[in-house]
């Protein structure tokens, strides 16, 4: 995240990190920017208000998989729909880690979790398809095992004007790996690497070849009017706020 921001060349005072609640979202407390650690699931709604008040700010919204797609789902689809210029970085470790390993809407079906001792029944979202369907104009996926690529994807998201989503798959060896005997951090990262394939290469593969694969890279990038800019452009009266 920090290296991606460094790539963008943004001025430190313009960068804001907003985060929700969960392991991922503690990040805002360690970063030397203006940082806002909100309530569970609501980071995007807080960030929307902040962006509308100060459209020049470069706002990164760090969320966990459950934080963003479960309790935060409603705010996520509406932030996408508005296409407001926020950079949503979803750290997807496929589990509620902080609370000890409950399954989330992005936990692979059949996984064991503290609240799914016999394996989860539910099919997870494909968060990028959800984002695109809801109106987001930039979507990319990276993994913790390809940090350089992830940096570039976050930097590209930041450069994109409109609502950008970067899903960053990461490992949770303690809560998710242990219960699903996926080994320690190294094994989990190695298996993540084996399953990863770039979006470009994936186009040459058919349905069942793609089964269980992690498609990394930019999934979509569309130019469309950005909410805050449109709002202020259509505000007729002279600026005195």
């Amino acid at each position: 995240m920090v290296r991606a921001i460094e790539r963008t060349g943004f001025d430190q005072k313009d960068v804001v990190i907003v985060s929700g609640i969960g392991c991922s979202s503690r990040a805002s407390g360690y970063l030397n920017f203006n940082t806002l650690h909100t309530t569970h699931g609501r980071a995007l709604a807080f960030a929307t208000g902040l962006k509308m008040a100060r459209p020049e700010l470069k706002i990164f919204v760090i969320m966990g998989d459950g934080d963003c797609s479960a309790i935060g789902g409603n705010h996520f689809i509406h932030a996408c729909r508005r296409n407001i210029d926020l950079n949503a970085v979803i750290i997807n470790n496929q589990i509620y880690g902080m609370t000890g390993g409950q399954y989330s809407p992005l936990t692979p079906q059949g996984s064991k979790a503290s609240t799914a001792p016999r394996g989860t029944l539910e099919r997870p979202f494909d968060i990028l398809k959800l984002a695109r369907g809801a109106g987001a104009t930039f979507g990319a996926r990276g993994t913790a095992v390809q940090p350089r690529q992830l940096e570039q994807l976050i930097a590209r998201a930041a450069a994109h004007k409109g609502f950008s989503v970067v899903e960053s798959l990461s490992q949770c060896p303690v809560a998710y790996g242990r219960r699903n005997n996926l080994g320690g951090p190294v094994e989990m990262l190695k298996s993540m690497k084996e399953k990863s394939i770039s979006v470009e290469k994936a186009t040459a593969m058919d349905e069942n070849e793609l089964e269980g694969k992690i498609l990394t890279g930019v999934h979509f990038s569309i130019e469309a009017p950005e909410y805050a800019e449109e709002y202020y452009r259509t505000v007729t009266a002279e600026e005195n706020h």
Binding site: V145, G184, P185, V186, L189, K190
Partner: peptide, 8 residues
Amino acid sequence: GCGICIAF
């Protein structure tokens, strides 16, 4: 000592 750097 998670060993990630060693592995990669």
